[in-house]
Amino acid sequence: MTETLVGQCMCGAVNWSSSDQITRRLSCHCGDCQKATSSPFTTFVGLPPETVEWTGEINHYESSPGTHRGFCPKCGTRLYFRSDKWPGEIHIHAATLTDASSYTPDAHVVMASAVPWLHLADDIPKHQSFQAEPADQE
């Protein structure tokens, strides 16, 4: 489904928009996402990276080889996750959506790393690993 999505960081210095096909709607429970966001999980909107228009300065942190996380240098808002493992996608933090009222993830992934005290009451499918396997790393 194609939707027009817009979002921004907390202070408004960085804005983004896309009017393309959403590739994934997921909540990730992996240890890297937990550390990067200081939360038990984070929810992403997957989009083709070339379809996202950005305004404002973005700092990047290479959290592991070939994996980058973008954030606003002014307020620190986490903006996205991008990895060579999934070359056709950028995963934008759903919390940056200007209007998140119509957004719902369709999967929880990496439940094997979920914090034990979190009990999800939703009926969204839960996967022990990634919903889409990473590209071969040669």
Rank of each mutant, 00 (worst) to 15 (best):
H68C: 03
H93I: 14
I22E: 07
V6G: 09
E89H: 00
V14S: 02
V14K: 00
P116A: 08
I22Y: 04
P48G: 01
T55I: 01
E133T: 05
N59D: 14
T4M: 13
T104C: 13
C11H: 08
P73Q: 04
P87L: 03
T67N: 04
E50Q: 15
L5Q: 06
P40T: 13
S17N: 13
D106S: 08
S18K: 07
G76A: 08
S83E: 05
V115C: 09
R24L: 00
I124H: 11
A107Q: 10
H127T: 10
P125N: 06
E3S: 14
S17T: 01
G31N: 15
T43W: 07
S113L: 05
T43K: 03
A112W: 05
V110K: 11
T4D: 09
F41M: 15
F41S: 12
I22R: 06
P87A: 02
E138D: 14
S27K: 11
P105L: 12
D84L: 11
H29L: 01
H60N: 08
A13C: 13
D136A: 13
R82C: 01
T55R: 13
P105S: 08
T98P: 07
Q34A: 04
C33R: 00
T42H: 06
E89A: 00
S27I: 06
G31T: 15
K74T: 14
R82N: 11
A114D: 04
D84E: 14
P65D: 02
A107C: 10
E89I: 00
T77E: 11
L47Y: 04
D20L: 00
P40M: 12
T4P: 03
N15L: 11
C28K: 03
T4V: 14
D123V: 10
L97S: 03
H93Q: 14
C11W: 04
T77N: 07
S129T: 10
D122I: 02
S102H: 15
S64V: 07
G12H: 03
T67C: 05
D122A: 06
I92Y: 05
K126N: 10
G70C: 00
A107N: 04
E3Q: 14
F71A: 03
P40G: 13
Y61E: 01
G88T: 06
A135V: 08
T37F: 15
T77L: 10
Q137D: 10
S129R: 12
H119P: 01
L26K: 02
D106N: 12
A121I: 14
V45I: 15
N15G: 05
S63E: 06
L26E: 02
Q21L: 10
F130C: 12
C33L: 03
C33M: 02
R24G: 05
D123K: 12
A36H: 07
C33Q: 04
P105R: 09
T77Y: 11
Q137G: 09
S18P: 09
D106V: 12
